[in-house]
Amino acid sequence: MKKVSQVAGKAIPLNRADVDTDQIIPKQFLKRIERSGFGEFAFFDWKKDPSFVTNDPRHAGAPILLAQQNFGCGSSREHAVWAIEDMGVAAIIAPSFGDIFRTNCSKVGLVTVQLPQQDVDFLMSRSEELPDAPIVVDVAKQTVTVPGTGWERRFEVDPFVKHRLLNGLDDIGLTLQHVDAIAAFEAKRDPLKPTTEGAFKETAKFG
């Protein structure tokens, strides 16, 4: 995972609630077995509308996405995160996020910032009116600021996620440091729990 300490720049004001991951990346693009190149398909159906916000050149190349409540709800497809990341977005600010989406963001180093509704609304209207005005998300200080205005808000971040973001740490590598603890746990696991070994057994074919 790459290191992220600060994201600064303009924003894309996506002023909709309950944006589900089917909208972020429709199913027809989930057949790809690669991890890259999803950006051009982000918001595929909504983008057909010329007035959709990602088509607005004033917001092109913005590293921050502003969204409304429950952003990223629905399917667990991490392709949604890859698509947003591939658009060049490095941080998303919203009043709330879908749980699985938010976790997926934390695994790839996409910063999610939860701010109260009125603060998101403020940033949303400011970005609509002054699209070039930058916003700064500081992971270390846990703040969102609007330079030159004195506007600053603090946000909460899981301390472990923050640690991983700031140091660009690979989650699996961290867990594998505790492989002895995993082995010890396995040694005392309930032997009545099922295994899938029997699943290799051939059964009747059909079709």
Binding site: V81, T103, N104, I172, T175, V179
Partner: peptide, 11 residues
């Protein structure tokens, strides 16, 4: 998500 799928596969 897929990153967690990988995590569970590996650990």
């Amino acid at each position: 998500g897929t990153s967690e799928v990988e995590h569970v596969l590996a650990t």
